[in-house]
């Protein structure tokens, strides 16, 4: 038997399935269905070694109940803790919503070799297009870009929510609006009496963007139904398919390329993604 094993995960851990202990430090209810969790590793060494890229995700264990993948939404340059924005919708997320500050959870990761290519995106105009909870993974990139603002040209966020009360990261959005080096446009499907902003789906705002074709990157994250329509609008603008990046969601059980649930064609969302370029997606049937 010749097993030529090349260890990629060089750590002292003897199993890729063992989570590290972490603590929920702070919980903020940011919409009727979403909470924002600040998470810190129990062991300082783990916290110091936890370096993630914008667009990466973690596998979160609620002990005795289950494990699920969540995208990180905080600034990668913040080394004190990281944040997850979680909707109360499944087994694990439901349990998390019932937990209190100080509760212990398990974390594996960060995972995903395909993250937002912030280095390639330097010296480009950036359009970020988010639908609903899709804003969460993009927040990590926005915060990174603002941290290194001089490396990027114009930055614009287009964000669509179902109704005004479902708008996530309201404090951040307000802060972005107060800065003059980033523009944000929020649109809702169902406005209430007080809403004075845009109404409708976020795709209808794309034609208004007038960034030049040659040095513009677009990043997209939202519900599955959104991608097709956003891509149509972006293609009308003739942006290069290698400069449009989309973060995809799939069912994941392991996060490390073994359980196979997240496969699309010959790619695995967990190890090859979750962020793919539009060119990659065009070559992956059923990606969108």
């Amino acid at each position: 038997m010749t097993l030529n094993v090349k260890y990629n995960n060089k750590s002292n851990k003897s199993s890729i399935y063992v989570p590290e202990l972490a603590r929920i430090n702070k919980i903020q209810q940011i919409s009727p269905t979403e909470k924002l969790f600040d998470i810190v590793f129990e062991d300082d060494k783990n916290q110091n070694n936890f370096n993630f890229e914008p667009g990466q995700f973690v596998e979160l264990t609620v002990f005795g109940l289950g494990e699920a993948p969540f995208s990180i939404c905080s600034n990668p340059e913040n080394k004190d803790f990281f944040q997850l924005c979680i909707r109360d919708i499944g087994n694990v997320s439901g349990a998390l919503h019932r937990m209190k500050e100080g509760s212990k959870i398990g974390i594996r990761g960060p995972y995903g070799n395909g993250y937002f290519p912030y280095e390639k995106m330097r010296n480009h105009n950036i359009i970020l297009i988010a639908g609903g909870l899709g804003l969460a993974p993009l927040m990590s990139l926005v915060k990174y870009i603002l941290h290194h603002r001089e490396d990027y040209k114009e930055v614009m966020i287009i964000y669509g929510a179902v109704n005004p009360e479902n708008i996530l990261f309201k404090d951040d959005i307000q802060y972005f609006s107060s800065r003059n080096d980033i523009s944000i446009c929020v649109t809702v499907d169902n406005p209430d009496a007080e809403w004075t902003g845009e109404v409708g789906v976020c795709t209808k705002l794309i034609p208004r963007v007038d960034f030049p074709v040659e040095d513009t990157c677009a990043v997209v994250c939202g519900p599955p139904v959104m991608y097709k329509f956003v891509i149509i609008e972006l293609e009308k603008k003739n942006y290069s398919s290698e400069k449009v990046f989309l973060s995809l969601e799939r069912r994941m059980e392991c996060g490390v390329g073994k359980c196979n649930h997240c496969h699309i064609g010959d790619k695995l969302v967990c190890v090859d993604g979750p962020v793919f370029s539009l060119w990659q997606i065009k070559n992956l049937k059923e990606a969108i």
């Binding site: 399935y17 002990f63 005795g64 109940l65 494990e67 392991c254 359980c259 196979n260 649930h261």
Partner: peptide, 20 residues
């Protein structure tokens, strides 16, 4: 090779495990 991973807890509510 596809598998699911599930978390379970024993009746003593103390010992748990991840199983695939």
């Amino acid at each position: 090779f596809c598998f699911n991973v599930k978390d379970d807890i024993e009746l003593n509510l103390k010992d748990g495990n991840k199983t695939r």
